[in-house]
Write a protein that binds this DNA or RNA. Structure first.
Length: 444
RNA sequence: GGCCCGUUCGUCUAUCGGUUAGGACAUCUGGUUUUCAACCAGGCAAGAGGGGUUCGACUCCCCUACGGGCUGCCA
């Protein structure tokens, strides 16, 4: 459905950092733009001046950069206020805006009353029915007007790229407030104006915007614009099905990055989770883009488990060539001459790159030996037979062969206690490769 | 309460009325490795419940239950 160059946008409000839920939206829009040779717009929805902060805007861009989601264009709604007011004038002239005077408290009361009577809490258009004299009286009273969009009360339909055919009766929705009494332009309006002005042709966003879409379609049409295509992806829930937002603190991109999650691992999961395509580590962003199909996503809420990120991260880390990690290894203090051997040994035994430090510490300082009582004499004998350094790749074989000869032990009974005594672990890399890297003679 | 969407192996999902209900991830077993990882082979495991429609329903319809979203002078 998106073969022609598609203009997409990611429109976070800078009131917090990006989290996995946001990321999915950003990534989908990014991939669609790239796949079609289109344009990916980063739009900061910062009309809420009280909650928006530059610090968050910077953080969002840093996070997107980290993931390689580069935008072609960046916009800030706070810089477009004049345009919104101009559009508002147009809608007033077209009689689609009307001024209202109820206070938030009054509206709240009205809703509660409707609910108590078993009626839907839809705005009753009381202010719409005010005549000019009544409005003037309201203003004279010192009331400050705010502005609602007059919905055309028909069914609004669209073919959603994920949900399929959607139909919402405008009569079941309140006329949306688009401009507050203090003049602040609200999201629904700014977003609609922007999407038309910026030529956005395809909007992928969370299912929490489904009802908004209905009203935004009418707003766009009232402005003489053509609504873009829409696709609403399901929202993520926690692994236990609980609402994800309650755990956002542990699921921010910054936190995942701090835990060592690799960008490509994160992208691989987010690009596929909830779709019918298998989740697997992608070789590159381009791979993800090529294989992306928004229509392959399901409408049901999707469980997200951050632990799934680690197998993917491990697979990615283990696939890295030495040059990709040389700086990191150098920073650990590994001598250049040992870097290649160290990486070969360590990479198969780590999940995140930070795990490298444990292996270097072990090789540099030696481990706390793990020796069973019945193996004590054996290990002591073996250690006494270990030739002086330096050790080569062949040392292990020669040494263990000699130990086998001397003690009569073989197989697991021979190798296992030595591994445990030298590394303090039951599992780990090839011992023949480990020996040349050991900086100290193992002690009992 | 109203509106919208949803419910298939543990997880993400395929199936567009007739299938031994398929795949991927996870898990388990075996093989290969001195061990781990990787790799190969194999195994376990699913249609929320109830009514219809139909020769036949996971698939279509209705009801119920459950889950998610919206119902703001937030985004």
């Amino acid at each position: 459905m998106t073969q022609r160059p598609t203009v997409t946008r990611f429109a976070p409000s800078p009131t917090g950092y990006i989290h996995v839920g946001n990321l999915r939206t950003a990534l989908m829009n990014y991939m669609i733009a790239r796949k079609t040779g289109g344009t990916f717009i980063l739009r900061l929805d910062d009309t809420d001046q009280e909650r928006s902060k530059q610090e968050y805007a910077d953080g969002i861009m840093t996070d997107l950069d980290w993931l390689g989601l580069h935008w072609d264009r960046v916009e800030k709604q706070s810089l477009r206020m004049d345009r919104y007011h101009e559009a508002a004038d147009g809608l007033r002239a077209a009689a689609r805006f009307y001024e209202c005077f109820e206070t938030p408290v009054e509206l709240d009361l009205k809703r509660k009353k409707q609910l108590n009577m078993g009626k839907p809490p839809v705005y009753d258009r009381a202010s719409y029915r005010l005549d000019d004299d009544a409005r003037a009286a309201m203003r004279a009273e010192g009331r400050e007007g705010y502005w609602r969009f007059l919905l055309d009360q028909q069914r609004i339909e669209w073919a959603d790229g994920i949900l399929g055919d959607i139909s919402i009766d405008a009569a079941s929705v309140s006329d949306p407030v688009l401009i507050r009494a203090d003049g602040q332009v609200l999201y629904t309006f700014a977003s609609s104006v922007d999407d038309i002005d910026m030529g956005v042709t395809f909007i992928v966003r969370g299912a929490d915007h489904v009802t908004n879409t209905a009203t935004q379609i009418q707003i766009m049409q009232a402005m003489g614009g053509t609504p873009p295509n829409f696709a609403h992806h399901s929202l993520l829930t926690g692994a236990g099905g609980e609402e994800l937002s309650k755990r956002l603190g542990t699921l921010s991109l910054r936190d995942l990055r701090a835990r060592g999650v690799e960008p490509l691992a994160l992208l691989s999961l987010m690009a596929r989770l909830g779709s019918s395509k298998p989740v697997e580590l992608a070789a590159s962003m381009q791979d993800l883009i090529d294989g992306f199909d928004v229509g392959s996503f399901g409408a049901a809420p999707t469980k997200f488990d951050a632990e799934d990120l680690f197998p993917l991260t491990r697979a990615h880390v283990q696939s890295l060539p030495l040059p990709a990690v040389a700086d990191k290894i150098k920073a650990l203090g590994v001598p250049d001459a040992l870097a290649e051997g160290f990486w070969a040994v360590a990479k198969a035994n780590i999940t995140v790159l930070d795990d490298l430090s444990k292996w270097w510490e072990l090789l540099r300082d030696g481990a706390t030996p793990l020796v069973a009582d019945e193996d004590r004499d054996f290990v002591k004998t073996a250690f006494d037979m270990l030739p002086p350094q330096p050790w080569s790749h062949a040392t292990w074989g020669e040494w263990t062969a000699a130990v086998k000869e001397a003690t009569g032990r073989k197989g697991g009974a021979l190798f296992r206690p030595l591994r445990r005594a030298i590394t303090g672990l039951d599992a780990g890399p090839e011992m023949a490769d480990v020996l040349p890297l050991l900086q100290k003679r193992p002690q009992l």
